[in-house]
């Protein structure tokens, strides 16, 4: 029996996306390699510290393969990465990848909370603004979007700490703990993302309500509520989902700042600390894991996109 046409088209679509994801990861790995090899500081010198002799340093360099040609180094590096062997952190004397993996769930928790806040609030406020276009509610929402996009995260974070932790004593100012610890960093991380989602949802919905099929839905005598929620929103959300996926990478990047402000013990804070300390093995592991997380989320988004838009799923 022939395979189900719709299902096999979907499978082909996912296989294409998976191959592409592999290509993106290889690109990220290569860029990180080139960047780390082009920074002036010498890893061997860093590991041994200021007291080391030149002989000791050159010994370690050859031990680490740093005296070999760049192509050979790149080959060894790819082999290491493929085995998920990023070497040890010289600060913690532990496997770099283990350090990052331990911290990653905490970052992911924060990013997920921010994503949920941004998507739920962003889409609902965007819908409200579109339905009340040019009226008070629309203007209020637009100002809100403008504010949350134009204020930098570190500043918002500090203001939120001052207001809700210092003055009102409602929420903890930082650290990792119960659900209440997630609120302030989650909101801070969500805000720029929220602004984008509000705008996209609003403009997407405003475009869609002028489509002919919306007129058809009205001509069928459907109540306006049904016209909007079962005919318009799904179409309006197609671009929103695409951008949401792309923006999730920004969210992981933003986590570096927000985790620092809120003393959140995640991979972002580990990354920024490791950069300051030039703990390159950890930097490498963290960047690659964040890139992998980004690619994974995009894969999920692409799948979702195929679900939302049958024209994509069926490979038209």
């Amino acid at each position: 029996m022939a395979p189900h046409p719709v299902r096999s088209a979907m499978t082909a679509y996912l296989v294409r996306r998976l191959l592409f994801a592999g290509f993106v990861l290889w690109g990220a790995v290569t860029i990180v390699f080139l960047v780390l090899r082009s920074v002036p500081s010498d890893p061997a010198r860093l590991i041994l510290g200021a007291d080391a002799t030149e002989v000791e340093i050159s010994q370690l360099r050859s031990q680490m393969g740093l005296d070999r040609p760049l192509v050979v180094q790149y080959g060894n590096y790819l082999a290491d990465v493929a085995r998920l062997d990023f070497g040890d952190s010289y600060r913690y004397h532990k496997g770099a990848i283990g350090l990052v993996v331990d911290r990653f769930p905490v970052t992911f928790q924060l990013a997920a909370v921010a994503m949920v806040i941004a998507v739920v609030l962003g889409v609902s406020l965007g819908v409200v603004a579109a339905l009340r276009v040019n009226r008070l509610a629309d203007r209020v929402v637009s100002v809100l979007a403008l504010l949350s996009q134009s204020m930098p995260s570190f500043w918002i974070g500090i203001v939120l700490i001052l207001v809700f932790a210092r003055q009102l004593h409602l929420l903890p100012s930082g650290g990792h703990g119960g659900p209440d610890h997630l609120i302030l960093p989650g909101v801070t991380l969500a805000l720029p993302f929220l602004a984008i989602l509000i705008r996209l949802t609003r403009s997407g919905l405003l475009d869609v309500v002028h489509e002919n099929y919306i007129q058809t839905a009205r001509a069928k005598g459907l109540p306006e509520r049904v016209v909007i929620f079962s005919h318009a929103i799904r179409n309006a959300l197609i671009p929103v989902v695409t951008v949401a996926g792309l923006e999730f990478g920004q969210l992981l990047g933003g986590a570096v700042i927000v985790e620092t402000v809120f003393a959140w013990p995640g991979a972002g804070r580990l990354l920024s600390d490791s950069i300051s300390a030039r703990d390159y093995n950890v930097v490498l592991a963290a960047i690659l894991l964040i890139a992998a997380g980004f690619v994974a989320i995009n894969l999920v988004v692409d799948t979702l996109y195929g679900y939302l838009d049958p024209r994509v799923r069926l490979g038209r």
Binding site: N212, Y213, Q215, R218, A219, G221, N235, P310
Partner: peptide, 24 residues
């Protein structure tokens, strides 16, 4: 009028592709 649409009055539009919802 909206309540009459579909049950009493109905309409067929010019361009059936853009008049049908692409995702349903």
């Amino acid at each position: 009028t909206r309540r009459l649409c579909g049950t009493e009055l109905a309409m067929v539009f010019q361009d059936p592709l853009s008049s049908l919802n692409p995702v349903l």
